[in-house]
Design a protein around this nucleic acid. Structure first.
Length: 567
RNA sequence: GCACCAUUAGCUCAGCUGGAUAGAGCAACGGAUUUCUAAUCCGUAGGCCAGAGGUUCAAAUCCUCUAUGGUGUACCA
């Protein structure tokens, strides 16, 4: 906690016993315009308790601070008490806190001894990963990073879509049109092709659907041929997904697809039946909800006895609650699945009231395409690989144009391209719908990933070029310019921003904070030469940049933005 | 029909638990010791915060209704 806030709250609450220290602490805000001051206290809400006008109150408050050396000035603007801090004290107090990375250690106490399970990415096996898989994957990974940095034990789960009739379709198709060898050789795109071909031909020949169901039944009955195909699908899919996860720097603690929970289904259903939550409706086994919940029933078993998506998710939640004993479980999916998760969570909370509040569906907006819906069945998805490749190739061109000495051009271009794609997504609020647009995803100027990376390169270059003297004797009072001051004020926000990103489950908070840091740094950079500055100024500025780069780099890590040192 | 989500500058978006004159980027126009890398910085212009009510000292923010768009609504995932 900032000493300026504490001190002011203390002084005010001792003089006005009607106002508690916490009330005052909660009332502080950042002035809209930094010219007003560094911290503001709106006095309107004190008017009732003190029976005076806000302007009068602010004037009375000011008189309590005469001669206080913490504050350079305190002014009353229309009922707002605006504090300007003593710059030297403020700078020292912020930077001391950041020296030696204290701040990261302090932050990691926030979620100490807490466990968070996060279910993200979850692509459908045998389908090529497309741009539509991007959001869940990177939002999930970023939230994982954010929770972990706050000291949580984070458990990432990739709940693969590895069960269902679609595999019967593929098996039938490949038995007929191909062979194990050919599939092994040609990989996931070949699986896609056959899936598309199946649907095309099944339109003319509906009996194929029955054949597919038979094959899926064989799989459920552990038929050797069916299992052999199924295992091959998973192997091929994972090989392909791993390449993309590696590019995006995404990893999981557990890859347990839907099929993993098949073994618990009977037990899960039995538990719900024993708890009297189920009933038979129209031949199906369902859970009905209270009228006030306004939801259709959730099907656990179809009238033919087969289980569904919902059944497997209920089993998965029960398993995770039991095995990981988490404080919270996050599910990262598209908003379209909201009803589904409301149903699943509602069932779990009925069955096990102690799980209330632990389950969260973290939704994000729909991805749409200008030329209508995409669908794997029709084969018109945009492969994620292709997006990343295009981004990289465009960067390669730009690097050539710019004639900058970059040691490993291809590798650098890859990192910048990936950064652009990730930042484009994570810099907007989760809930926003996105229309896919090549120009936008490949735009590299302004508030984009490359801009964030470029600013890092500038920081890095300074530290590389200028050797700093021993940091133990830094005189921060040499940092007198407004740009340094604004930069330090932004730096101070770090913990608050990470915690806010956690509270809102919103990586874009970090993305916007990075933009803010970059903006303040670039101003600082433009206006403050470091290389030819006097020694004491140079040292203090270098020290500031060192602190900045550690915070800035940390934020990039939280989003999964690759760090580049030359570009 | 019912339910959920969204709507802020020409475009893409910020706007913290209600607080001061609603902010950025892109696009447009004008500028910056050719430098610690200009993928940068500075300036100009651009707004009835979808509309109407309500709560409040104070509403882009909270509540209600309406409009528009998106999504979901029992045997797909």
């Amino acid at each position: 906690m900032n000493i300026f806030k504490l001190q002011a709250a203390k002084i005010l609450s001792t003089n006005y016993p009607d106002l508690s220290q916490n009330l005052i602490l909660d009332s502080f805000e950042l002035p809209k315009n930094s010219e007003f001051g560094d911290m503001a206290l709106p006095c309107f809400k004190f008017a009732k308790a003190l029976r005076k006008s806000p302007i009068q109150i602010a004037d009375d408050f000011i008189s309590l601070f005469h001669g206080n050396e913490l504050y350079e000035s305190i002014t009353n603007i229309k009922g707002y008490l605006n504090f300007k801090f003593s710059k030297t004290i403020y700078i020292k107090s912020v930077l001391d806190n950041y020296t030696n990375e204290n701040i990261f250690a302090e932050l990691s106490l926030f979620g100490k001894n807490k466990t968070m399970v996060i279910d993200y990415s979850h692509p459908n096996v045998a389908k090529n990963m497309g741009i539509h898989n991007l959001r869940s994957t990177i939002i999930g990974q970023s939230l994982y990073n954010i929770f972990e940095s706050l000291g949580y034990k984070a458990i990432g789960v990739n709940h693969l879509g590895d069960w269902g009739t679609q595999f019967g379709k593929l098996m039938w198709a490949l038995e007929k049109w191909s062979s194990i060898e050919e599939v092994e050789e040609k990989g996931i795109l070949f699986l896609n092709e056959n899936y598309v071909r199946f649907h095309k031909e099944a339109e003319k020949n509906p009996s194929m659907e029955d054949e597919a169901r038979k094959w899926f039944k064989k799989l459920e009955d552990n038929d050797l041929d069916a299992v052999k195909w199924w295992k091959l699908f998973i192997k091929i899919s994972m090989e392909s997904y791993k390449k993309i996860y590696k590019r995006l720097d995404v990893s999981f603690d557990f890859v347990t697809g839907e099929s993993f929970y098949i073994q618990f289904l009977a037990e899960t259903i039995a538990k719900l039946e024993t708890a009297n939550l189920t009933e038979i409706s129209e031949g199906a086994l369902v859970v009905k909800f209270d009228e006030s919940d306004n939801m259709p029933p959730c099907l656990l078993k179809k009238s033919d006895g087969a289980t569904l998506y919902g059944t497997r998710d209920v089993a998965a939640v029960m398993y995770r609650l039991k095995v990981f004993n988490p404080d919270v479980i996050l599910y990262i999916t598209d908003i379209a699945q909201q009803l589904h998760f409301n149903q699943v969570f509602n069932i779990i909370e009925k069955y096990n009231p102690s799980s209330k509040g632990k389950l969260e569906h973290i939704i994000f907006g729909r991805l749409s395409f200008p030329d209508g819906q995409m669908s794997t069945r029709k084969g018109n998805i945009i492969p994620l690989n292709e997006v990343l490749d295009k981004a990289r190739d465009k960067v390669l061109e730009i690097l050539d144009e710019r004639e900058v000495e970059v040691p490993d051009k291809y590798e650098t271009a890859e990192k910048i391209g990936i950064g652009a794609v990730i930042f484009n997504d994570l810099s907007r609020g989760r809930i926003k719908n996105i229309e896919f647009d090549w120009d936008q995803i490949l735009s590299f100027e302004g508030e984009t990933g490359p801009h964030i990376q470029y600013s890092y390169v500038r920081m890095h270059n300074i530290l590389e070029r200028v050797k700093c003297s021993d940091t133990s004797e830094i005189d921060f009072s040499a940092l007198t310019d407004e740009y340094s001051y604004e930069l330090i004020k932004t730096l101070e926000q770090f913990s608050k921003k990470v915690i806010q990103a956690h509270d809102d489950r919103e990586p874009s908070v970090i993305a916007h904070y990075l933009i803010e840091l970059a903006k303040n740094f670039n101003r600082f950079y433009r206006n403050n030469r470091i290389i030819d500055a006097p020694k004491d100024v140079q040292d203090s500025r270098i020290h500031l940049v060192k602190i900045l780069i550690s915070v800035y780099g940390k934020c990039m890590n939280l989003l999964g933005l690759p760090i580049v040192e030359k570009m």
